[in-house]
Design a protein around this nucleic acid. Structure first.
Length: 897
RNA sequence: GCGCGAUUAGCUCAGGGGUAGAGCACAUGCUUCACACGCAUGGGGUCGUUGGUUCAAAUCCAACAUCGCGCACCA
């Protein structure tokens, strides 16, 4: 055994152990192994991102599952990697270009820009991977993947081609969500609705055939009125029937526009009259289609206004144009009034600017395997934990909309479609496009055409999620796939249930014929202490690396796991992480204490079975029972993915049971004058508990557990704790149950008595260290054998046994009624009768309150006749014991005079 | 509007039909020979409201309130 320093210094051991594990290949999954397989595919973090607390939570859970599975003898693959995060990465590289060279991507051109993006990725791309390593993640780094790796990209393209050939991918001119910040289309999922304080502008349009007569219209977006091509009312609205078939003047640019009737209009809202701007609103677009209205787009792609809006608006920003349009309406006498109004505005998830509904030519996917994906989750073939996310998933799946998969970006998987030169422009502007209508002028293939000089490739790239939906299998080569696919568990946040989980299920079914995973565990979302979601823009997200420096990776892991309930959001509080560190230190020092006692006569892995059973103290049997229960409870909690419960079990056992009770109670055997047999037995139990405990702890705190395993000399073969199998035998094998029950009962009674004695001392302001003598009227004979331990625990100089009531202490002494009997604490000075009166009186009050409750129950005939017999019996016993206690307290109070 | 979740000690949260729990914070006392990242002792809660089911409700059910989230959305 090597010497253990006084305080635990994580920085000195964590990185070292990580290196040793990696060098020994501990994380590598052997596809040719005959063991039962277990696999997890990491949710690939953004390659240019940095670790957040969300990642810490998510990846710690995966690491726990992976490490536990290894210790259960499984062949474990935890497959790591990153995704290319199209919009985010491109935005970062563009910002960098702008800042350092004052250039745009167009200044560089596509090829150079992509080259820059790769440089950026190579420079910053491994930060998050390094951070995961600091956290202790046992990923198989030899299998690390990136969504733009050559192999992976090929699979993405093959997928596109297959879906195109199956008629599921099509091109069409549709109303899509357009991000004016990133200048690309987005999927519906990438739009975040936010409530905004806006204004509702009431304006009036003049009727063409009746000058001086006006229609009042309410709108939140006056800047789009230049694109109005109609006015709509509800056909059932009695106020407006007379308007149908007539027309109104759009004020500017002045134009006659028709008034149409459409069911979509809500007569209750505003004035019941809607201005219809088919180019800039999805609902208006639909109305326009139904009534054959013209489509006039007044915006440029960056949401400045174009020439259609009129000269005075051209080039103006959309929000500036809003002000200007309002001013202009006012000056024309057409603005009626303005009201404050709160409505929901769609924002781009990545660029955080309001999206514009915009008609454009995009690629869409009709999702494959929708029914199969619904069935898989509905039937629990794929289990969701917590189960309630099933409902969210099913609701989305049942209302699924086609997926806009093209993005107007350069960084990503370029769409594998080529147009014949000369025909390209026409094909790209066609209303729709498929292989048939294009004839031989379209090439859709994993390989470019043989005569590339005659072709033009589609400029768009694919949505990043169109690559990550293949992640669980596209990351695996054939032997790996054969062995580890489908994967076992997926650990992710509920915020990407549509983005990723649902799509992976459909892709898995479509391309592999299998569900990609068996279980999906949804973590909570980490919020700050005020309940706000952590984000970089709010600056409320601590850097996990700082936390690791401060508290150690194990401290961070343990702290975060202890507050991570299943599927509930987590309010982050740094004191929790501090707790994790403190716990690590506690472990360290308990091990240090063990080490100071010197070696035992046997190695740590042996069990208690070869010790003479009668050498085991009641404290030993008690803690061994608790260890046995701990192992069982942990196993159950793992089966239910109750990670916080496991952390709590580990914490309570070690701190409250092992250190506070057992460790303190065996200290007498480590004194110089101790009996060697008892000492040996205590050491052996100590070692059995520690070694078995470290096995349980390891997935949560891998570094410190490994370090202690080595320092205590547990790890002869195999060398690493992380490769050691969990014991499947009970530590109590062969121990008669009645003996255990008796020992636990006695130890429990003694611990409680010790606590009461400490309390008695404290009530009399006696320092815990002040050795006091007690006189005991024992309730049980065995107590005589345990007075040494009791003295140690209670801080007593000695305990004298009274031989009966006659032996009661001379004079008055404060006393405590304990499960071991009545203890008197003779004081040197005079007893403070008044204080003692108060103390006992308070206790008596409590006892009487309890007694009242129990008595009321037992006097209720309905209770005694209907409640289960054992409950009634328990109440009877409770009443008896409260009664006894009350009588004793009464006597004591009387005795005070 | 629909759906989901939360409401327990000052704070952060466990628990869950049959004596209300933890950590932190607080108070008091400890340089007790593993640990002050510690030890000991203590104070502190009618478990959101109102009904219902039950011998028994903080726990199950319903409604309501408040907060949060998701989906949809009336311009």
């Amino acid at each position: 055994m090597a010497e253990i320093p006084k305080g635990y210094l994580p920085a000195e051991v964590e990185e070292d152990w990580y290196r040793r594990w990696v060098e020994a290949g501990c994380f590598h999954a052997d596809a040719s192994s005959s063991r039962e397989g277990y696999s997890i595919a990491i949710p690939p973090p953004n390659v240019t991102g940095i670790l957040t607390l969300g990642h810490v939570l998510n990846n710690t859970i995966q690491d726990i599952l992976a490490r536990r599975a290894r210790m259960q003898g499984k062949e474990v693959l935890w497959l790591p990697g990153t995704d290319h995060a199209g919009i985010a990465t491109q935005a970062k590289v563009e910002a960098h270009l702008r800042k350092t060279e004052k250039k745009t991507r167009h200044d560089l051109g596509r090829e150079d820009f992509i080259e820059r993006a790769w440089q950026w990725k190579n420079k910053h791309g491994n930060i998050i991977i390094k951070q995961l390593k600091r956290l202790g993640c046992s990923c198989d780094w030899e299998r690390e993947r990136f969504t733009m790796d050559h192999d992976y990209s090929s699979q993405v393209q093959e997928t596109f081609v297959a879906l195109f050939n199956a008629g599921l991918i099509y091109r069409g001119k549709r109303m899509v969500n357009w991000c004016p910040g990133s200048l690309t289309a987005l999927s519906d999922e990438e739009v975040i609705m936010k409530p905004r304080k806006s204004k509702l502008y009431y304006m009036r349009y003049e009727l063409v055939d009746s000058p001086g007569e006006y229609l009042e219209i309410a709108t939140t977006r006056p800047e789009t009125l230049m694109g109005d091509t109609g006015v709509a009312v509800n056909p059932k609205d009695p106020r407006y029937g007379k308007l149908l078939g007539r027309s109104a003047w759009r004020p500017f640019p002045r134009k006659e526009i028709p008034i149409v009737a459409d069911e979509h209009i809500d007569p209750e809202f505003g004035t019941g009259v809607l201005k219809v701007t088919p180019a800039h609103d999805k609902a208006d677009f639909d109305i326009g289609q139904r009534h054959g209205l013209e489509i006039v787009d007044v915006f440029n792609p960056d949401a400045t206004l174009n020439a259609n809006a009129g000269e005075e608006f051209e080039g103006m920003d959309r929000f500036e144009a809003r002000e200007k349009a309002v001013e202009k309406l006012e000056s024309l006498g057409l603005l009626v009034r303005v009201e404050d109004y709160e409505n929901n505005v769609g924002y781009s998830e990545r660029a955080d600017v309001p999206v514009e509904p915009r008609i454009s030519m995009q690629w869409f996917l009709r999702y494959p395997q929708v029914q199969g994906a619904i069935a898989a989750v509905e039937s629990d073939a794929i289990r969701f934990i917590p189960e309630r996310w099933k409902k969210t998933y099913l609701h989305w799946m049942e209302n699924i909309q086609d997926w806009c998969i093209s993005r107007q970006l350069w960084w990503g998987h370029r769409i594998p479609v080529w147009y014949r030169k000369g025909k390209a422009e026409a094909l790209q502007n066609a209303e729709s496009l498929d292989a048939e209508t294009a004839g031989g002028d379209l090439h859709v293939g994993h390989q470019p055409p043989d005569d590339p000089e005659n072709w033009v490739q589609d400029p768009d790239v694919l949505d990043t999620w169109f690559s990550s939906w293949l992640w669980p299998f596209a990351t695996m080569d054939d032997p790996t796939r054969k062995r580890f696919y489908p994967t076992t568990d997926l650990v992710t946040g509920p915020d990407i249930i549509f983005f990723w989980v649902a799509r992976m299920i459909m892709a898995g079914l479509q391309f592999t014929g299998h569900n990609p995973f068996a279980n999906v565990f949804f973590t909570g979302i980490i919020r700050d202490i005020k309940g706000l979601k952590m984000s970089k823009s709010l600056g409320n997200s601590p850097d996990p690396l700082d936390l690791i420096d401060k508290y150690g990776a194990d401290g961070l892991r343990f702290g975060i796991m202890r507050i991570a309930p299943t599927g509930q959001d987590i309010r982050y509080d740094e004191t929790q992480i501090e707790e994790g560190r403190n716990f690590a230190n506690k472990l360290w020092n308990a091990a240090r204490y063990r080490q100071m006692q010197g070696a035992g006569s046997s190695d740590l892995q042996s069990s208690i079975s070869d010790l003479p059973s009668d050498s085991l103290s009641i404290y030993a049997l008690d803690i061994l029972s608790k260890l046995d229960a701990l192992e069982k409870n942990i196993a159950e909690a793992y089966a239910r993915y109750r990670f916080n419960e496991i952390a709590q079990l580990l914490y309570d056992f070690f701190w409250s049971e092992f250190c506070d009770l057992f460790l303190e109670s065996v200290k007498i055997h480590f004194r110089e004058d101790a009996d060697p047999g008892a000492r040996e037995s205590a050491l052996r139990v100590f070692d059995v508990i520690l070694s078995r405990y470290l096995l349980q702890l390891h997935p949560y705190m891998p570094h410190i557990s490994e370090e202690l395993w080595e320092k205590l000399g547990c790890g002869a073969n195999p060398p690493f704790l992380m490769q050691t199998q969990l014991r499947t035998d009970s530590v109590l094998d062969g121990m008669p149950a009645d003996r255990l029950a008796e020992a636990s009962q006695r130890a429990g009674a003694l611990y409680q008595a010790a606590s009461q004695l400490r309390n008695l001392k404290a009530e009399y302001n006696l320092a815990a260290s002040k050795a006091v003598r007690f006189l005991l009227e024992p309730a049980e004979e065995w107590v005589a054998d345990e007075t040494d331990t009791l003295c140690l625990l209670a801080g007593a100089a000695g305990i004298e046994l009274a031989r009966g009531a006659a032996d009661a202490p001379a004079g008055k002494a404060p006393a405590a009624i304990t499960p071991l009997g009545k203890f008197h604490m003779p004081l040197d000075g005079l007893i403070d009768v008044e204080a003692e009166h108060a103390r006992l009186g308070k206790e008596l009050q409590k006892v009487e309150a309890e007694l009242k409750k129990v008595t009321a129950k037992l006097e209720n005939e309905k209770f005694t006749s209907r409640a289960p017999a054992e409950v009634v019996e328990e109440m009877r016993q409770r009443m008896e014991s409260w009664n006894r206690r009350r009588d004793q307290l009464g006597e004591m109070i009387d005795g005070l005079g």
